[in-house]
Design a protein around this nucleic acid. Structure first.
Lengths: 347, 347
DNA sequence: AGCGAGAAGCGAATCGATTCTATAATCTGT
DNA sequence: ACAGATTATAGAATCGATTCGCTTCTCGCT
């Protein structure tokens, strides 16, 4: 592939002239410009981004790490970030930690090695000590947490308003008349898991419904964990009449557990999940969900990161909350068994 | 972030010595090695990949472009490629063309600019002329088509055995007794769309069932196109009793069309889709699918690309076909209406 | 003692761009 | 016609690594 100095030699001009043409800056006569542009065309010249990045000390690249790219929630988040960044002519480097700290670690080091200008991180589950090492891994690269963040935020974060979302989901079930409401929570190591559970507790307290520890289960971000936690829940006597499920994969798992326990939704048990996805309307039954605005999280995070990049270096960590929306379909009903699909409303 | 020469100056040694330690090559005394390693540790040194790549003339990076990252099929394909490449210490640069030629074009140029060592391309729908320009966009970067390829392959490609898959799906319906079998095909600009349709035709011919042009519809890779094509199909008199749908998004759309046309699956119409996905078992009804081995496509393509990279430059284009598998659930039955779930078998 | 081999480390060129400075050429106004 | 400004181009340093060749030093062997 042609280099700028090859072009210059061939034209018998200096590299600085060719560079001036490529970057449209400096004084170049129209005649010279035309001659150079023709040569660039002919040679299929593409500037070497590594050389350019080395010289400029920046790569025009943002790293984005998510815990599971096959989860459409994160794919949509990525699109939101990509749309915004592409408009500023930044490229996105995508990495998938698969919820494994070691992968995440390797990728962060790789981001640092490539000198990405900034990093958007949906952190994988990890211990506090691991989280604390992140700044050392990425050096001085600006970083923004998206969707998930450590309990004690160390840098900017962009999250859904999970307390309100958890509250709204639980409250909807309470309004339908449920009193034995279970929750399939995420681990509490990250803020969104903790916040959703907090919202759940808050809603119960507001209605003076006693908290039953047996109705709180902790799963992971897998279908399996939803399945097994679900089976355990329904083994209890009396079983819960409704379940709040804190992410989409666990929701699918719970659906499987219902099937195997020969329970019908929403007749025997109501379900409300998190992280709406495209095929929810086609499931049986069509699932009521808390729709977390994935794409908006991505773009808002990208925006926050860019703000850090240009100036604003030294400001204290900031946390942005985006509202989530309750989408009601057919998986929730009154505990008696009567159909109870209620008009959708904002949380 | 520390550079190699800063480390060298601080230690009062030459950069070549530090480099030798970093890369474990050349003669360095144990004492010196220890001293340098300590300094590297302390300074959190990470080699600058841009500088290294510039010098070495290679980036240790492979570009992967897919038409839709929110489609779990492509996400799984990506994982297959990533797993294999990570084991060789290559990094993956992921791009999402969103089925738009211009995006794909920009990303390919960006890949070339970064001097990716190779490219894995699931091409977006495009005209023959557009396809023909691809080699110019990427220069001499080795390229492998994955999952989709142009009708006349110009470089290596790794595909599913789509003729056999289309044949198997259609044949299954024929065996159940269907005679009016529609197909929701993809456009014929790329090989897999054409091949699946060819398999369909071949199966009909083998059973001496006449081809009805009205039963062949062309959609895109969207839920919408599946919905509208589906509505049109069922407006006909007599309507088809079964449909082969050539990708997963159209399948979801068709499901919506069935609902709106008040048809029940499989009682009124049988459906068999392509590109199995995780939540198929939870749909209503659980969908029978042709499972295309997404991860295997990804890893096989990565493997083929690496083969090109080390030697084998000058060999003629090669095409690898991977078998697809028929997964039968509850969306297919005999046309009379009797349930007809049949034990799964290999295609 | 003399010689060569190998070890240990240094210095400089190089990759492909950008950009500052220097210089040559042209133009402007009086 | 000439000082001074402006325009057009060339040259060289620089970014952060790698790597080749060179020098110096230490041994071991005869």
């Amino acid at each position: 592939m042609a280099t700028i100095s090859e072009i210059a030699r061939q034209l018998e001009v200096s590299v600085s002239t060719v560079s001036a043409v490529v970057n449209r800056r400096g004084y170049v006569s129209p005649a010279m410009r035309a001659r150079v542009e023709q040569a660039l065309q002919d040679a299929q010249y593409r500037p070497n981004d590594m050389a350019r990045g080395l010289r400029l000390g920046q790569s025009h690249t943002i790293g984005l790490m998510v815990p599971d790219l096959t989860n459409s929630f994160f794919a949509r988040l990525m699109r939101g970030a990509e749309d915004y960044l592409a408009s500023l002519d930044f490229r996105l480097l995508i990495a998938d930690s698969r919820e494994e700290w070691n992968r995440q670690r390797e990728y962060l080091i790789s981001f640092a090695g490539r000198r990405t200008d900034g990093i958007l991180l949906v952190p994988c589950r990890s211990t506090d000590e691991q989280i604390a090492t992140i700044p050392q891994l990425v050096g001085s690269t600006p970083l923004v947490f998206v969707d998930r963040s450590p309990l004690r935020p160390i840098v900017d974060s962009v999250l859904a308003d999970n307390v309100r979302a958890g509250y709204a989901a639980t409250n909807h079930l309470l309004e339908l008349g449920h009193r034995r409401i279970a929750i399939l929570s995420e681990p509490l190591d990250l803020l969104n898991g903790a916040d959703r559970l907090a919202g759940y507790k808050k809603a119960l307290r507001a209605r003076r419904v006693a908290l039953d520890r047996n109705l709180i289960r902790f799963g992971g971000d897998t279908e399996d964990s939803g399945y097994w936690c679900g089976l355990e829940l329904f083994k209890q006597a009396p079983p819960p009449t409704a379940v709040v499920v804190c992410n989409n994969l666990m929701t699918l798992g719970l659906l499987g557990a219902l099937r195997d326990a020969r329970l019908e939704c929403p007749r025997d048990v109501s379900i409300i999940g998190f992280d709406d996805f495209e095929w929810c309307p086609h499931l049986s039954p069509p699932l009521s969900m808390v729709r977390v605005p994935a794409a908006e999280l991505g773009s808002a995070a990208a925006k926050a990161l860019m703000r850090r990049l240009r100036g604003a270096e030294m400001q204290s960590p900031e946390s942005i909350l985006l509202p989530a929306e309750l989408v009601l379909r057919k998986s929730t009903a009154s505990p008696g068994g009567s159909a109870g699909a209620i008009a959708a409303r904002k949380s």
